[in-house]
Write a protein that binds this DNA or RNA. Structure first.
Lengths: 152, 152
DNA sequence: ATCATAATTGAAAATTTTTCTGTTTGTATT
DNA sequence: AATACAAACAGAAAAATTTTCAATTATGAT
């Protein structure tokens, strides 16, 4: 699907605030309400828009401790990799998991209540997954920037 | 603000899909539409809900190259830190920036079109910020998990 | 028990989304 | 240039949802 300038502007607005009404959007884009409506429907149908979510402030729900964990596997057989990825994806403390290049195999973003909860997580959940070789954790001191909006 | 079990369930549902109607939610929560409405408004007012956003599939907008960049500053004077953080926050390629513990000072999540765009970004944008000592980049081979929903 | 406060409900009003019909616009073809 | 076709657009009506309102029920403190 080819995105024209209006689609891009529209996506930009929606990425920043999905609660804007079609009327608001139609004003900003100099279009009719229906035109906006149909463009959005098309973007949804084509999968450009994947979902609409509510963002929760972690400070308000006692999940202020954020850590990034590097993980190395002992082996890289298909079996081990598949199993590891499935188990990690099931951990609610892991919001993100990436297979990456470099010294380690994976990078995880973990969010828990505090250092104590993190220790608990490491001991009882993460390192109890088999085939993990080594880990290296980095703690977030301050979140300088965090957006979900891609520049289109 | 104290969150009861209903609030938590509600936040869980909204984090996964903010387009659910109050009627749908009222069914799942065994409440009236207005009760759901009032609870949501309160969560917004108290700042538990920070915003509603649209998520765009990066593959559909030609931003499939994701990298994590470690950055070390040459000095850590207040001035340098403030300036660096401000400049980094202004870069549209940088979706996330964290001040972290460990060997490096910062961890950045960068999203661009391809390796060429990444090189361009490194040379012309990132490393042109003053006071950067060294960088170390890791490239995302595969995104195993990526959610915005915190387990509450 | 009584009071005050907060949460909940159902109905009405206001707003928004969605559908529908017809028009315009752009593009390709002759 | 004229024609045909499809895609995008516009305005109005219908459907659905959000928001307001008044009244009721629960909750906690005195």
């Amino acid at each position: 699907m080819i995105l024209d300038a209006i689609d891009k502007k529209l996506l930009d607005l929606l990425q920043k605030d999905s609660k804007r009404t079609n009327k608001e959007l139609s004003n900003k884009l100099n279009l009719s309400v229906t035109a906006v409506y149909e463009r959005i429907k098309k973007l949804e149908k084509e999968g450009v828009i994947s979902k609409y979510v509510t963002l929760v402030k972690k400070e308000k729900v006692e999940k202020t401790f954020v850590a990034f964990c590097h993980i190395k596997l002992v082996q890289h057989t298909q079996d081990y990799v598949i199993k590891f990825e499935k188990e990690v994806a099931n951990l609610v403390e892991v919001l993100e998991c990436y297979h990456i290049s470099g010294d380690y195999d994976y990078l995880l973003k973990v969010i828990v209540k505090d250092m104590d909860a993190f220790r608990e997580f490491m001991v009882n959940k993460l390192t109890s997954i088999n085939h993990i070789g080594s880990t290296h954790s980095m703690f977030v001191i301050n979140e300088v920037k965090h957006t979900t909006a891609i520049n289109i």
